[in-house]
Design a protein around this nucleic acid. Structure first.
Lengths: 209, 209
DNA sequence: TGAAAAATGGGTTGTCCAATCCAAAATCTG
DNA sequence: CAGATTTTGGATTGGACAACCCATTTTTCA
């Protein structure tokens, strides 16, 4: 797969059916790339998993690269959607703790497999695919913004004596590192202690008014 | 590349020259796999980069999998060797800070490219290659142990009111997450704030005797 | 020093996979 | 409903790459 630097081709108009088929392909590709990595997920696998035939994939995507970019956006949206209900409460320690618990719980359900969908993709493409690297980086920027907004609210209420931007970025880093180690060790403990340490750090910066 | 679960073949005896050639192959493979990822680093590339010809690679390694395992061990050793001088001082806040500075400095020199050699390999192979996943996990266990021993010394002196094992694991997680985000964003800030937050957390658990 | 073992060179094979093509069926739109 | 457009099916091609083979040269060591 070559890295393309050209502009995205103009979106063709899709019928309802076409839209559905496209969606199915992206979802199947996302799943396979998550399970096996980008290079090991062949378009033949994607074709079969999506239940489409022959040239379908190339009818909706110029090449594997374009499909990959769609998958990165799809995974970013999925990850954010899943946490959406929890983001609203990240302006209290209780909310942060519920968020932490949910992340740990989720990894347990997955038996510590898979890691972070964005992080895994990002790591794989970072050095060989500038466009995809940027897409993953953008996903993380959105994720970080969601975390920051809770901490910012805490800060605005005068309850936090630290830069919310730094704290949010550090928290996301701890989460990513925790997920990676959890994935490799097949134990949730790395994720738990990483998040706990970061929450303790945040708590220690709280102002007892 | 298929995942082999069989036992390692008995090491053949190597001459001095053979030893050197093997080393060159592993070093070249490590570099290429670091730059391009495992699947994109072809054995033809490795052959050329190592300056060996034709069947050399298969003379020293049964298949790509065996070479990959050798590379993971090689990278683990490299990473630990590079930090060795700093590990000894991880029992003081000053030592921890010097370690932090060195890691940040190193990423700056690399222009934030490449990420962590072990983490990148680990992430790529985690879900498709149990043996390689285990090798990467083992590398991290060794790394964690090196960090822990400093914190353990602090704890043993009664200067640290926290579990050194948890702190070491959390610190490694923050480091890994920081490296990943730094690699994707091409800025050192994620690594800086992740490590700073963790050092601040450790400092906050210090006992002012 | 000479036979055995190890190292090297280069060619070959079979498979897998991204990408392309052409024609047929379904769907939309005036 | 009819012509245009979109969607689908299946077959094919061309290239890349892991893995294998055998002959030749170099090194070891008895």
């Amino acid at each position: 797969m070559e890295t393309r630097t050209e502009a995205r081709r103009p979106e063709r108009k899709l019928t309802r059916k076409g839209e559905q088929t496209r969606r199915r392909i992206v979802a199947a590709a996302a799943q396979l790339m998550y399970e096996r990595g980008v290079t090991e997920a062949t378009l033949e696998d994607v074709r079969a998993a999506a239940g489409v035939s022959g040239s379908q994939v190339y009818h909706y995507f110029a090449d594997k690269q374009e499909l990959l970019l769609a998958v990165i956006e799809y995974q970013t949206q999925s990850v954010l959607d899943m946490q959406q209900p929890l983001f609203a409460d990240l302006d209290t320690m209780e909310g942060l703790r519920r968020w932490r618990d949910a992340l740990v719980e989720y990894q347990l359900r997955l038996q510590c497999r898979g890691g972070c969908p964005i992080g895994s993709l990002g790591s794989e493409v970072a050095e060989t695919n500038p466009e995809a690297r940027l897409a993953a980086a953008t996903g993380f920027v959105r994720w970080e913004a969601a975390i920051r907004s809770g901490l910012q609210a805490m800060h605005d209420r005068g309850e936090l004596d630290a830069d919310p931007e730094d704290l949010a970025l550090a928290t996301l880093a701890a989460l990513q590192g925790g997920l990676l180690l959890t994935q490799l060790q097949r134990e949730v403990r790395p994720l738990e202690v990483a998040l706990d340490a970061m929450l303790a750090h945040i708590a220690s910066r709280r102002v007892s008014s």
